[in-house]
């Protein structure tokens, strides 16, 4: 049984203009100890997916279909109490902006102690709290844990704050750690350090992780609320199969040079009136008739990759 399984998830947001049909049948799964990534451009539904898993959806949203199961339990139908229990002990999250998740008026010690107390049913003594706090900060590769504990967030650099966030997440993440682009707001050399740290933690502790970028075994590529491709990271990057993934990877500036191609023409469709069939149809250079009307299922391509595109259908579809 996978640790986490999302099946055909549909999420909508109610706004003035109508209903935004954001997630359109997202399915993904994650085994214990596996590192899985979701990539996609802004507003592709990554954050909505992650928020649904954590039970953090905004008030104007609605799960219109599908389910999220964590170790066989349905997260969407879970009681509030059970959900809190999961967040206390099993699942945790690291956010993109290192400062947003720390309260500026409390020291790291106060915030970390609170989280440790919250994560356990036992009553810990001050010494035990301190011991545990120093331990997680060490895991977060922070030097001089005692100095860090007595610092306020503003006294720490962005990289250190993100390490503190990771340490805090580790307190409750005994099984699953979700990281929403934990490095993108930092400098490249610092981002590199953070990603290496996350990788090491996952390998040592055997917890699973969904970071949104690299160091992952398997990735899902999202476009406009749908999973368009899935496969082992290297294979997807080296030989992308879905037209969207191909164009996206082509658009990334390469260290090997060669200029920058045109990117992807057109715009992401409006979530108010998304295309009825494949959501990429409006921008796809290979669009066929069937793409306008039917949403493509994930077709297996090669040994391990899957792409949601009718180009891989066995039938000879009319162009």
């Amino acid at each position: 049984m996978p640790l986490l399984e999302v099946r055909d998830l549909r999420v909508e947001y109610r706004v003035y203009e109508g209903t935004l049909k954001v997630l359109n049948g997202v399915s993904l799964s994650l085994e214990r100890g596996e590192k899985v990534g979701i990539i996609g451009e802004s507003a592709c539904g990554k954050t909505t997916t992650v928020k649904t898993i954590m039970g953090l959806l905004a008030k104007n949203s609605k799960v219109a279909g599908g389910d999220v199961t964590y170790k066989g339990e349905d997260v969407l139908k879970m009681s509030k109490k059970r959900l809190t229990e999961l967040r206390r002990k099993n699942i945790s999250m690291v956010f993109q902006d290192p400062s947003a998740a720390l309260n500026p008026v409390f020291t790291v010690r106060q915030q970390l102690y609170d989280i440790i107390k919250f994560s356990t049913d036992e009553r810990l003594t001050r010494e035990e709290l301190h011991e545990k706090a120093v331990e997680v900060l060490r895991q977060g590769a922070l030097p001089e844990p005692d100095r860090i504990l007595d610092s306020y967030p503003f006294q720490l650099s962005g990289g250190m704050k993100q390490r503190v966030n990771i340490s805090m997440a580790l307190v409750s993440a005994s099984e699953l750690l979700i990281a929403d682009e934990p490095g993108t707001s930092l400098d490249v050399t610092i981002e590199d350090q953070i990603m290496r740290l996350l990788k090491k933690i996952v390998e040592e502790k055997g917890i699973s992780i969904i970071p949104v970028k690299k160091f992952v075994d398997r990735i899902y590529v999202m476009y406009a609320g749908t999973i368009v491709e899935e496969g082992p990271t290297r294979e997807v990057f080296n030989s992308p199969q879905h037209p969207y993934t191909q164009l996206l990877i082509k658009a990334v500036p390469k260290l090997t040079g060669g200029g920058i191609p045109e990117g992807i023409l057109g715009q992401v469709p409006s979530y108010l009136k998304p295309p009825a069939g494949c959501r990429f149809v409006t921008r796809c250079p290979y669009a066929m008739e069937v793409c306008d009307t039917d949403a493509p299922p994930l077709y297996g391509v090669g040994a391990k990759q899957r792409a949601a595109c009718f180009l891989y259908d066995e039938r000879q579809l009319p162009r």
Partner: peptide, 16 residues
């Protein structure tokens, strides 16, 4: 240090 920290997508880039 900067060059070796850059996230890249392909093996060809890793090589340079």
């Amino acid at each position: 240090m900067l060059l070796s920290s850059i996230p890249v997508v392909s093996d060809a880039e890793e090589a340079v």
